[in-house]
């Protein structure tokens, strides 16, 4: 039981960063960006292939984050400059990324066993016996840095313009802001975070796999929505902490469900999809209501 709990916390922490990325696009920008499915894998793929070719893990992580931002940029440009609806723009990115990820990896799966990753580095430095413990430390460090970054950014002049774009882009244009730029910036931040999550999860799993992004959006959404049930989206800080809790709770639920006889690991995505659908249905009465009078 303790093992289940610890591993849920470790995974929950790392995956919560995916949730934070989804929060930026889905909640702050208020758009459905499906790039996540590709950018999550992109982060893992670029990180893993750089590390196995001898690039230091810290540098590989920075590149993974930058690639994630780049994928957000592409989706943003398709959406704003070519006026392609965001859903389709992001599906185009996601589809293109599948091939790009395979190109980067050269094969469908890159094992990381035996490589020096941030995780093994932390484990060695602190002489931790288990990867899970190192993952918890890595997760907490990453989350603290991201939360500090987000709270800082969304309290700057530019941060306000991103928030305002999401809730009322008519208003933000009337206030002299090019909402194309703010949308693109938001998408870049979202997908940079998602790629970071992919790179961290790859280290925990011990491999990068071309299919690991499948279901990323729904998994991210699950943590966002569970977080909102807990903290009611009062401030950005609470939302982000809520996502961390939500992500851990989600991992616990998954662990519990997997341990039953009639659900296997393969059923998890179906389980998650149904759970998210039900959660949204319930939350619609409450959390989602506010969106109704948007931009009338």
């Amino acid at each position: 039981m303790e093992a289940i709990l610890v591993s849920a916390i470790a995974q929950g922490l790392l995956w919560s960063i995916l949730g934070m990325g989804i929060h930026v696009s889905y909640r702050i920008l208020d758009i459905s960006d499906l790039t996540a499915e590709g950018s999550f894998t992109l982060g893992a793929a670029s990180f893993a292939s750089l590390v196995v070719s001898g690039v230091p893990a810290a540098l590989a992580l920075v590149v993974a984050i930058a690639f994630g931002a780049l994928s957000g940029l592409v989706t943003g440009l398709l959406h704003t400059k070519l006026s392609i609806p965001i859903l389709l723009s992001s599906i185009l990115s996601m589809t293109g990324l599948y091939s790009i990820n395979l190109r980067i990896m050269g094969k469908a799966n890159i094992p990381l066993s035996g490589e020096t990753t941030l995780l093994t580095y932390i484990a060695d430095a602190l002489s931790l016996a288990r990867d899970r413990d190192a993952a918890i430390i890595l997760g907490i460090v990453a989350i603290v840095i991201i939360i500090l970054f987000m709270v800082w950014l969304f309290n700057t002049e530019f941060g306000y313009t991103i928030v305002a774009t999401g809730s009322n882009d008519k208003m933000i244009r009337a206030n002299g802001v090019n909402s194309d730029v703010t949308k693109i910036a938001g998408l870049m931040i979202a997908n940079a975070l998602i790629a970071l999550a992919g790179a961290l999860v790859a280290q925990y799993n011990g491999y990068a796999d071309v299919g690991m992004g499948i279901g990323a959006i729904v998994i991210g959404l699950a943590s966002v929505i569970i977080g909102e049930v807990i903290f009611k989206r009062k401030t950005l800080l609470l939302s982000l902490l809520g996502i961390v809790c939500g992500s851990i709770i989600y991992r616990l639920l998954v662990a519990l469900v997997i341990n039953t006889d009639f659900i296997s690991a393969n059923d998890i995505r179906l389980f998650t999809a149904i759970a998210v659908a039900i959660a949204i249905f319930i939350a619609n009465k409450d959390i989602f209501k506010r969106k109704v009078h948007k931009d009338a």
Binding site: E157, Y160, T161, V163, A164, G166, S167, N168, K170, M171, I172, A174, N175, G176, V177, R290, H293, K294, D295, A296
Partner: peptide
């Protein structure tokens, strides 16, 4: 509802307006 951002505070909205065109 069109002229303001509901998710930002009054002070934050004013801050946006103060930088209109900048």
């Amino acid at each position: 509802l069109s002229g303001t951002c509901p998710d930002l505070t009054l002070a934050e909205n004013l801050s946006l307006a103060k930088r209109r065109g900048k």
